[in-house]
Design a protein around this nucleic acid. Structure first.
Lengths: 235, 235
DNA sequence: CGGCTGAAGTTGCCAGCGTCAACATCCATG
DNA sequence: CATGGATGTTGACGCTGGCAACTTCAGCCG
């Protein structure tokens, strides 16, 4: 029964979504191999969960398999998460933070209120297409207890707040119909969320796939939404 | 160990979504109590699964609990479904059929192409709000293998086909911008799907809840989408 | 009417899962 | 250098999805 479980700690490099911010200076040195303590097991577990969902699908998401991928035994995760749902909550929080960040980044170069709105919508859809596991966990039916609100670093706006303020800015500039800002926001949110969901859930069989296809589609759709569906003749 | 498992067959009445069509004349007589064979266990299992998701959430969906609710032992479902996923597929198929039916019913009284489009969109959202378990199974991340297309009774159109043909009819009547029918359809679909998803996943904390709230919201949103978001001044 | 046969349901089993309690190891602080 | 708290391990429990072998039933054929 001498299991040859050579401890290989998960690479921290594979993360493309995780908070870029500084983390405890751990796992940095390359010679961490033989340690009993992991250094940053919590983040390693989150990464492993995301990778597992991406590779094997949601049904394969097992606390024990996550632990295996992180190179620890099956009960180790309980030192960092109360239960499986708490781990998923951490994934969702990471997703919300990353989505807001990507929206801010794509909006940053734009100056016109409408251009900023386009950028926000496109970033929302692109985030979902690029990070399906996060998106699924964020909005999926996997939580029994209500999810705690994602922790937003000081001064940073969440994705939804960002959308609202962008739309209100466009209204203030006279570029969008005034009033009903809540309705306009919900319409915009529904459109991008629906498009993102359809993409992630592979409901768009015939349409262009892949990140580029999604980007083009998101671009067209956000324009189309704002331009309106009525014919030029204005029936 | 004498378990008092008095066989109580699941009421077939509780179904509000199931195919209304006639089923094998079974379970109809009220004195079915002591039977060894169930009569319509397959449908009873689907109903039990839907009820279980509705009452206890997705995490509680267990083949064994479903069997318990249907009044049979844990291995009985395997006579009707290859595995748990096959049961979920049956739920999804029932959902797709019911959604298409509800859309047709709500569209039926309307004659104008735009009114029919409104009715289709409202029915889509209302179906999701009224039948969250079905909607979640239909579009959730629960299938590893691709879902087989829902069986559409002869001559009946599926929900998506219905939406496409309605939009094309509106275009033909000159009430919607011509061309790009695929884009218009995707926009409309994304909007109603996003709105429905946000409702089902309880992301709309502040907005009006409940079926009436959803209906009003769906009404407003479908109009708003078609009218367009631009200010009357046409920036 | 009586026996056969296949469909439908049952019993018992297995590995794997989530979770907990008890134990082992390590790092930091005194 | 001792010690205590944090972190990881071991072993256990009940539950689950799935399989195999058995039992019960209904309809059919003689």
């Amino acid at each position: 029964m001498v299991k040859s479980r050579g401890r290989q700690w998960a690479d921290a490099e594979a993360r493309t979504v995780a908070t870029k911010g500084k983390r405890k200076q751990a796992v940095e040195a390359p010679e961490d191999k033989g340690r009993y303590h992991h250094g940053d097991l919590r983040q390693a577990l989150v990464d492993a969960a995301v990778g597992l969902i991406a590779e094997e699908g949601f049904g394969a998401l097992t606390l024990r398999e996550v632990a295996r991928r992180a190179g620890v035994t099956h009960a180790a995760p309980y030192r960092h998460f109360a239960d499986k749902e708490a781990l998923l909550e951490a994934v969702a929080h990471e997703g919300f933070r990353a989505m807001a960040r990507e929206m801010r980044e794509r909006m940053a170069p734009e100056t016109g209120p409408l251009e900023r709105l386009y950028a926000a919508g496109e970033a929302y859809v692109l985030f979902a297409v690029r990070h399906p596991p996060h998106f699924r966990v964020m909005f999926g039916p996997h939580f029994t207890r209500p999810m705690s609100p994602p922790p937003e670093p000081e001064g940073e706006q969440g994705a939804f707040t960002l959308l609202v303020s962008t739309i209100e800015a466009a209204q203030a500039a006279g570029l969008l119909r005034a009033g009903e800002s809540r309705s306009l926001t919900l319409t915009a949110w529904s459109l991008v969320h629906g498009l993102a969901s359809l993409f992630v859930d592979r409901q768009l069989g015939e349409s262009p796939q892949g990140v580029e296809g999604a980007e083009a589609l998101a671009r067209v759709q956000t324009r189309l939404l704002v331009e309106g569906m009525k014919p030029p003749a204005r029936g």
